[in-house]
Design a binder for these strands. Structure first.
Lengths: 239, 239
DNA sequence: TGTATACATCTTAAATACAAGTTGGGCGGA
DNA sequence: TCCGCCCAACTTGTATTTAAGATGTATACA
């Protein structure tokens, strides 16, 4: 877990180093390059990529590329086959569904934990979320709305103040990017529905009705599931 | 996530032959060696280990050791500091607690999902669990009891048939090994309590009372938390 | 005595080189 | 035409080498 981007930009700003670029570690560049390709669809499902191929494109040796592959495998994006290559993990409907189920598990837990927090904390979080762009996305581009949605849900989880859960959750959201990138959940007219669901969820939290918040969350994720064309139902909220 | 042992053949035409694995890959040996040392306490919290050190001990080059370090970092065991070394992540009480919270989140979800399954499936799982060694540990060594406990809980999660959740969960259990290795939760007289809790949980599942199963689970994990000396309470079960 | 600086010695980062396994296509024979 | 074999071209796995950053210590100086 820990950080997906181990490169904290500590050193860059102050010292105007002579070489203008290339200060980034090569392993990092490789990681971001491949991941970007994964997310924007340059490397489609089932594609087999090789270390040498990427190394050549980025003009570096295979060593940092291998490092990046390992990282991406750990995150569930790639599957490495010895002496064969790195398979871009195909996203099956079952996997997409399972991913959303995992999100439901973690976000529900976060709400449960918040339920036993002082009432004023719930109010505070709820109020904060009501002012979040994900509840009032006027003027946001699709990409911005996408990011707002991510931040909205991440905030709920982080409010539970459980580092391990937060780590697991952020890894999940990254994986989901590959799915939602093609689902266009955040373009109108879907956007109206999503925004309303966010608002209802935040309101329930503010008012301390965590059971209702969990119902809203369940409905929200079920809606997402339908939007990306996955059939079947979620497990009922644990209540 | 995916699997720690990439030897499993999951899908597609890639799998084909099962490699006879004449000699274990060096990277694998390095991974297991370091992990074993981590779990049995050879490398204590906060210890800083280096690639060269391990490579020399195992008589291999640093390359596979680096690979193992990366893997262990992804699992949360190590934290890599550039040009410094690999820090054995210290387990704070807060982290231990968070780990158990994450387990609670995922196992509770599994039970929720089972709740919407056909009744006979619940009965089947419950009956299977009642016959599990974790409910009748006579003649088991401490280590075997430890493993039985792991398998018992893993079975609950896997029954939910949600691959992503299962993956997340198995990663968590591995991390918890480092904690419980020193907690001796499975030695008598703790063992009697733990066994009873397992039995009650399995019985509740068999009888289709998932709400009660979740209560048992909550109590069980809270007991573990106390056993390893972590204070504070869990969030109430979501009900 | 206290502080700053130079250096010796750690460490990892990345490039390169070499070894070994897998695949698929071409070729020959039935 | 079809089947089996062999080889060439990929691929990754591991080792070795080179470079560069970080640290701690010893020493010079105030």
């Amino acid at each position: 877990m820990s950080n997906t981007t181990p490169s904290d930009s500590v050193s860059t700003a102050l010292t105007s180093s002579a070489p203008p670029a290339a200060s980034q570690p090569a392993a990092d560049r490789a990681y971001r390059h491949v991941k970007a390709g994964l997310l924007d669809g340059s490397y489609p499902d089932g594609h087999l990529l090789s270390e040498g191929e990427i190394a050549q494109a980025l003009e570096m040796s295979r060593t940092p590329v291998r490092e990046a592959f390992l990282h991406l495998q750990a995150e569930g994006f790639l599957r490495l086959y010895p002496k064969r290559g790195a398979l871009v993990v195909p996203i099956t409907p079952a996997e997409a569904r399972s991913l959303l189920e995992a999100r439901l598990a973690l976000e529900s837990f976060a709400i449960d934990k918040l339920a036993s927090a002082p009432a004023e904390q719930l109010t505070s979080i709820g109020t904060e979320l009501l002012e979040h762009p994900a509840c009032d996305p006027a003027g946001l581009s699709d990409a911005e709305m996408h990011e707002a949605d991510r931040a909205f849900h991440a905030r709920i989880v982080s409010a539970a103040d459980s580092p391990v859960v937060t780590d697991l959750y952020s890894a999940l959201r990254e994986r989901q990017l590959r799915i939602t990138a093609t689902a266009r959940t955040h373009e109108s007219p879907r956007r109206t529905v999503v925004t309303e669901q966010h608002t209802r969820l935040a309101t329930a939290l503010r008012d301390g009705d965590t059971a209702d918040a969990k119902r809203c969350l369940h409905e929200h994720l079920a809606h997402t599931m339908r939007a990306i064309g996955v059939s079947g139902d979620f497990p009922a909220p644990g209540q």
